[in-house]
Every structure is written in C-alpha cells, then in structure tokens.
Amino acid sequence: MEYLDLNLTSTLSGVAVVLVVAFLRLHWPFRYQYIGHFFRQNPERRKRWLDASYRRNRTRTVAMLDKSTLEILSGNYELAEKYIVQGLNVCKERPSLFNQAMVHYLFYNLAFVYFTSGKYSEALEIAFRVYQRDQGMTDSLGLIACSHARLGEIESAIEAYSLIPGKRSTREWKLLCLAEIEAAKGNYERAITHLHQLMTKSGLSLCLNRAELEKRLEEWTKASTQAG
C-alpha cells in the first residue's frame, strides 16, 4: 500500500512538473509583453519592452506581434502591417499549436491597422472573423463597434458595443465606441466629451497613440462647429 502511495505521489508530482514546464514554455516568449503592460500609461517605456521582445525573439511570431504593436503605438501603420505579414508567413510555414494561436493576435493587429488607416470595411471583416474564432478576444468587439459606427451602421455598432463586457480592461474601448457612435449620430459634443475622458486615461491599452485621439478631436470639433 505504501508502494502504491509513493507511486501516486510521484505521478502527481511528475504531472505537476510537466504542467509547470509547459506553462513556462508557453508564456516565456511573452515576458516582455507582460512587463510592458505594467507601463500602459508610459508609452516610451512600453515601447522599449516591446522592442526588447523583438530583439530577443527575432524570428519567432511573438517578435513580429510585439514589433507590429510597437509600430502601431508609434503611428507607423505601414511598417506595422509589414511585420504582421511576416508573422503570418511564419505561422503558415511553421503551423505549430503556438503559431496557430498567434494567428488570431496578428490578425487583430491587422484589423487595428486597417481601422486607424480608414479602411473600415476591411477592419470590420477581419475583426469579426477574429471574434468568431476566439470570443475571448473581446477587444475585437470594440473594433467591430467602432468600424460599424464609422461606416454609419449605428444599430450594428450599438449591438456590438452591448456585447463588450463591463470589465476594467475594456473601459477605454467602451469610451472610444461611445464616442464613435455619438459622432455617427451627429452628436459631436457628446462624442468630444467621451473622447476627453479617454484622453485623460491616455488610451494606450487600445494602441491608439495621442496623435490619433487628437485627430478625432479636431475632426469632431470642426464638424460640431459646422453643424452649429
């Protein structure tokens, strides 16, 4: 009986070790990204950690993901798209389970690039597919709602917005969606109010740099003046 107990203990210990090692191997490439999240309110420090990930991981898909996020934060959307395409090519050439999971994150970044570049239909299509395949990626709902709003599809935008969970991590997305929806309705003053709230939070978790937020502020302020 003691022999069986020892075997059971050894087996459980072995399983625990295997699970811990697997967990570390899965998450280790993301360590720079995780550290960068602690500096969401400090864009320059966050960029440095994303760049460190790229330099350390190099040819891995996580390097392309973090480099594309870095370029999005810097407003270099064409360059961001270049790294996204490189990452997707690596996923195609090396279809491991890890890379298959990375495809969703790379396509999310691509949808974001299209959205900030004014390609709202393309952004909507990709973000919708990402959310269909992984409903845990709720940031995709923000892109879907904002893209619908930019296309003037207000009811669809409101429907997508209603699906965004009320978590602290989604607060900034919800503010941006509300701003875009109000602007689509022609309520520019309300849109500007939501935008000001977002700008005080910096909007960095969205990857929207301050220049993008200020561009919207200028656009809606001008529209409000003309409407008045």
Score class of each variant (00 low, 15 high):
Gln100Met: 14
Gly152Val: 08
Asp134Glu: 09
Glu125Asp: 15
Tyr114Asn: 12
Met102Ile: 03
Ser169Cys: 04
Arg94Thr: 11
Gly152Met: 07
Ser74Gln: 15
Lys167Val: 08
Glu125Val: 08
Gly118Ile: 12
Asn89Trp: 14
Ser147Lys: 08
Gly75Glu: 02
Glu125Arg: 15
Phe115Trp: 13
Leu88Ile: 08
Arg168Ala: 10
Ser121Pro: 02
Ala149Arg: 08
Asn99Asp: 01
Ile164Tyr: 01
Ala157Ile: 04
Arg94Tyr: 13
Val130Leu: 04
Glu71Met: 12
Leu163Pro: 02
Leu73Thr: 07
Ser96Thr: 15
Leu110Tyr: 10
Phe128Gln: 15
Ala127Phe: 09
Ile154Tyr: 06
Leu141Asn: 01
Ile154Ala: 05
Ile84Gly: 00
Ser117Phe: 07
Leu73Cys: 05
Glu78Gln: 12
Val90Cys: 00
Leu151Ile: 09
Glu125Gln: 14
Ala80Met: 00
Pro165Leu: 10
Thr170Ile: 00
Tyr105Gln: 09
Val103Ile: 15
Val103Tyr: 01
Ala157Tyr: 00
Cys91Trp: 04
Gly75Met: 02
Tyr77Gln: 00
Tyr108Trp: 13
Val130Gln: 02
Ala111Ser: 15
Phe112Gln: 13
Ile84Ser: 01
Leu97Asp: 05
Leu151Ser: 05
Leu88His: 02
Asn109Val: 06
Thr138Ala: 11
Ala160Gln: 02
Pro165Ala: 08
Tyr161Leu: 09
Val85Arg: 15
Tyr161Gly: 03
Ile144Ser: 04
Thr116Ser: 12
Glu78Lys: 14
His104Phe: 12
Asp139Ala: 11
Gln86Phe: 14
Arg150Phe: 06
